[in-house]
Amino acid sequence: MLVRRLAGSLGIALAAGLLLGGMTHLAIILAMPTLAGNSAFDRHAAALAPGETRLLAAQQNETAVPFADPAMAMAVCAFDISDAPLRVEAPMPEGFGSLSVHGRDGTVLYSVTDRTAVDGVVTLIVMTRQQHDEALARGRGDDAGSELRFVSPRVQGLVLVRALAAYPSGLPEARERAAAMECLSESD
């Protein structure tokens, strides 16, 4: 009887220890992105001036993108829309191209492809809810024309443009198009 009780108590303690250890392990894994330093936003925001676009390399160096497709040219710009909206103009390639807005934590907030381009260029205005409401109050909401407007839930982040080269010979042109992205503050 005593051996059975000890075995039962040991089993309960072992199960509780495994459950507690599993919960701790899961909590640490889920907290890693938040607690880790040197995020993509931190690296690029520190190195880029306002309005500056940087072409990202697929090779292994300090500005490289891990596991990047060598046929994809990518460029990034950091933004802070706390003072004014951001105007992004990105020429799209003949093949596939995309433009995405990411929060500081890497979350994709908005994404469009080359299908939304007008005359080969995607124009996107990234703004806060207050800036959007002010633009509507001034009557500038209806004359948007060919530009897309995005109300961002975050005031800081990254804009990433991707241009696919269908053939290796098209990679220089894809890089040119990606590097031609403009990120400018829309100060009144």
Rank of each mutant, 00 (worst) to 15 (best):
H132N: 13
I125A: 06
F150I: 04
H132R: 13
G17M: 14
D114Y: 02
T63A: 02
M1C: 08
T53P: 04
R177P: 03
Q130M: 03
S9I: 08
E186Q: 14
M92Q: 09
Y167S: 15
E186R: 13
D69P: 03
A90S: 15
A64I: 06
G106A: 03
S111W: 01
L20Y: 09
L2R: 07
V108T: 10
A58I: 01
Q156P: 01
L86H: 09
L18P: 06
E94H: 08
E52V: 03
L20W: 11
V108Q: 09
R129Y: 01
A137G: 07
S152P: 05
E134N: 13
Q156R: 15
C77R: 12
R149N: 12
N38Y: 05
A31M: 05
A36N: 07
S39K: 03
L10D: 07
A71S: 09
L6W: 12
I12Y: 06
F96I: 09
V159K: 06
D69A: 11
L18T: 14
R138E: 11
S82V: 07
L160M: 15
G157E: 08
L136G: 13
M23Q: 13
A16F: 08
A78Q: 01
V126L: 02
R140N: 07
Y110K: 06
L14W: 09
N38E: 10
S9N: 09
S111I: 09
V118D: 10
A90D: 03
A71K: 01
G22P: 08
H102G: 00
A68G: 06
S39E: 02
V151E: 13
F41E: 08
D114S: 15
D133S: 10
Q59R: 11
V151C: 01
D188N: 08
A68N: 04
D83P: 00
E147P: 00
G141R: 08
E52W: 01
A47L: 14
V155M: 02
V121C: 03
L148A: 03
